[in-house]
Write a protein that binds this DNA or RNA. Structure first.
Length: 496
RNA sequence: GGUCGGAUGGCCGAGUGGCUAGGCAGAGCUCUGCAAAAGCUCGUACAGCGGUUCGAAUCCGCUUUCGACCUCCA
């Protein structure tokens, strides 16, 4: 495989040539959801980003082991010991067991992923399924002197760690500030320093989720699961770790400290951070009340939404921006994307139906098409620049349409070039960007049949020049959202 | 307050020290029974002020402004 892929590494803050630790294998980890609630569109942007990373690496020929966790335990809203456990809180609200909540929202997450064409990872480990591994990791950290016990909880000793290592290098945080400025917060008395974070937390007697440990009953710390599980499945050092920008600090910073503290090895070679989806310039988040759920997107029933949007149009909308930029959600932007998406997909379907015809080739045409095919890879190789890649796909779409309409003879390119165009375009639509999810429901096939009948009848009346009747059919169908297009080689239709 | 990142044409959104991003919207044309679709043509944008440079929207400084993180958050 040709390796020219460059990845922007958040830690070194530069684009680096991607060189896997053990080619052709690639270890990819990304932080999954905490399953106490339904994921919203902003969450989905990150999952989509890493889905494309996973798909592209796979397409390049790498054997990717993609690990994406499910956080199903131990998330308190702060680490001062008085936060609420989101899962338990939700369990009380819905009058369910915590594990019922976890199952319910894991299922819902999986459903949403399917809708958005997000592939399941190779391994989807849960925090509660890896308590043993987490306890073992805590022991290693303790043995190395980077943690201490306090009232049944274990805290990571940031100050001790700082003697040898640099805590804060990922997020650019100044630890002296962290140590000094946050000292007056409440509930910190168990900790030596305010910057210390729990890796094991003793819980109140009425806490439902709890596990036995050498330090008493409790729950694993907030940041530990990712370290323990990435280590278990990808090794002490692995290639790529991804997540949302908002996880950089403290979550990922802590992961580095834990791994180095436990095993003395820098865990990640390339840190990738996906930027936020914003609404009117503000980060979409549940607490701000500006988030909406995938379901609300599909049926359009939310005050922020003017209409319903199809999952693939939304996925396309997200991929039209680079993953490291914020992307602002507006109805106008999404509707513009929707139209562009339809155009691209029309070209895709046109291409599938195109057959090559040989004739006199034109070298400049051959060169042009080959350049496009190479460009689209170059754009992706530049830190997964899907926005630029899509721009090239639109250039290709223009070519495809021109071939179909006979504006450019298809014979101007040789068959090899035609095949390359077809393979490249198809690979990007289907396998890499993965925006081709077809409606394969039974209803869809009935609709196909019905449309064939209707268009046959319309063809008959048009042959008799009964345009009033044919226009009526077309207008009525348009009202149902079906657009009829009369071309040289017959009539086609599409959902508008 | 600290740290970091943005400000691009009517809208969204890439990108680069000199060479057309792309999409949507808009105008004109071709095609068409009419539409739609498609193709062609058109707009010459980079927050402001300085500086570096032969040349900067792209590098540097300052200003304005928006946001993210600093507490759970994709």
């Amino acid at each position: 495989m040709e390796n020219k892929l460059k990845i922007y590494d958040s830690l070194s803050r530069e684009k680096k040539l991607f060189e896997p630790l053990n080619p052709p294998f690639v270890g990819l980890y990304s932080c999954g959801p905490t399953v106490y609630n339904e994921v919203h569109l902003g969450n989905l942007r990150t999952f989509t980003t890493f889905d494309v990373v996973y798909r592209y690496l796979t397409h390049l020929g790498y054997k990717v082991r993609y690990v994406r966790n499910i956080t199903d335990a131990g998330h308190l809203t702060n680490d001062a010991g008085e936060g609420v456990d989101r899962i338990e809180e939700r369990a009380k609200l819905e009058m369910l067991e915590p594990m019922e909540i976890v199952q319910k929202y894991t299922n819902s997450f999986h459903d949403v992923c399917r809708e958005f064409n997000i592939l399941p990872p190779s391994i989807e480990p849960t925090a509660t399924g890896h308590i043993v591994e987490q306890i073992e990791m805590i022991k290693r950290i303790l043995n190395n002197g980077y943690a201490y016990e306090s009232k049944g909880s274990i805290y990571f000793d940031v100050r001790k760690y700082m003697e040898q290592h640099h805590y804060g290098k990922l997020s650019g945080r100044n630890v002296d500030d962290l140590l000094e400025n946050t000292r007056e917060l409440d509930g910190q008395e168990e900790k030596k320093n305010a910057a210390d974070f729990a890796i094991w937390k003793s819980v109140a007697p009425n806490h439902i989720q709890r596990w036995q440990s050498p330090w008493g009953e409790g729950i694993p710390g907030w940041h530990l699961e990712c370290s323990a599980m990435s280590c278990k499945y990808l090794g002490k050092q692995f290639d790529i770790h991804g997540g949302g920008m908002d996880l950089k600090f403290p979550h990922h910073e802590c992961e580095i400290a834990q791994s180095v503290g436990a095993d003395g090895i820098e865990p990640v070679r390339y840190w990738m951070h996906a930027n936020m989806l914003t609404v009117n310039g503000d980060k979409m988040s549940k607490s701000k009340g500006n988030s909406f759920l995938p379901r609300e997107l599909f049926d359009g029933k939310h005050e922020l939404l003017e209409k319903a949007y199809a999952p693939m149009a939304v996925r396309f909308f997200m991929l039209q921006a680079h993953y490291r930029s914020t992307l602002d959600f507006t109805n106008a932007a999404l509707q513009a994307a929707e139209k562009g998406f339809a155009r691209l997909m029309n070209a895709y379907h046109t291409l599938q139906a195109l057959t090559y015809v040989s004739g006199t080739t034109v070298q400049s045409e051959i060169d042009e098409v080959n350049t496009l095919c190479n460009d689209v890879y170059e754009k992706m190789n530049d830190d997964f620049n899907t926005a630029e890649a899509i721009a090239v796909l639109f250039e290709m779409a223009k070519k495809i349409n021109s071939y179909k309409e006979g504006i450019i003879a298809i014979s101007t390119i040789d068959e090899a070039t035609f095949n390359k165009l077809k393979e490249t375009f198809t690979a990007f639509i289907k396998d890499i960007l993965a925006i081709d999810k077809e409606d394969t429901t039974e209803d869809a096939s009935i609709a196909d049949g019905l449309m064939n009948v209707i268009l046959e009848l319309r063809k008959d009346v048009r042959a008799k020049k009964d345009f009033a009747a044919s226009d009526k059919i077309r207008d009525e169908l348009l009202k149902l959202g079906i657009q009829v297009k009369d071309g040289k080689e017959g009539t086609t239709w599409s959902k508008s």
